[in-house]
Amino acid sequence: MRSKWSATPPYSTCGIYIEVTQPILNISGVQFHWPGRTGFSLSVPEFSIEAGETVLLLGESGSGKSTLLSLICGTIRPDTGTIHISETEISALTRGARDRFRAEQIGVIFQQFNLLPFGTVLDNILLPLQFAPERRKRAGNIRAQAKDLCKNLGLPSAIVAVKSNALSVGQQQRVAVARALIGQPPLIIADEPTSALDADNQAAFLDLLFQQTLANNSSLLMVSHDPRLSERFDRVIRMDDIAHIDRATI
């Protein structure tokens, strides 16, 4: 099986090589409440993911998963506490810098409707590279990369020229994986990526996701409400174990 200490290629952020032993994600003492929305607040005292680790985060809807993912991705910022990705404290970055950081370091896969329907598959796969020049450099020949990723994910390489809205849901999810993986971001975040797929497709999809994430030496944080997926992951965590939600009504 997979070692947590597998050699991770050095990722350069601001010219600093990151030690493999560093956690890819560390959340410490984070508190957040939605501005204007009454009552909902989330606190995460401590949560880490090691480099190369695959983690399943289980939680029902309304358990604060989405808020947690938004915090990790940097679209929102915690009121208190710190969030580190690689060695960067993203909770201290400006919004623009967080957007850039997300583009460079994180691959995101949604539940469904991942793709811009009017763009081709290639457009969609290359989209994050538009906002991440370093990741683009890492990807090298981006068109060849995109085609390889498609091939590795069991898609015909000719699919890159097809318009995304012509694809089946299963194909769309695979394209979303290709998009998350291109340029080898160290952290992949998947938000219930299999919920729109039937059981057969789910298994095949997860096989491919794991295989490619491994090949990419990326860490994977997947959020789901489905405990049956647990066995594939290095670690399974319940939302309740790491986070506390307060819904105080005012």
Binding site: C73, T75, R95, G96, D99, R100, R102, A103, E104, V108, F110, F113, N114, L115, L116, L127, P128, Q130, F131, A132, R179
Partner: peptide
């Protein structure tokens, strides 16, 4: 909204 969210997730700024 979905289109905007995808762009945001990929690193596009609100600007």
């Amino acid at each position: 909204r979905r289109e905007m969210a995808i762009l945001r997730a990929m690193g596009a700024s609100p600007r």
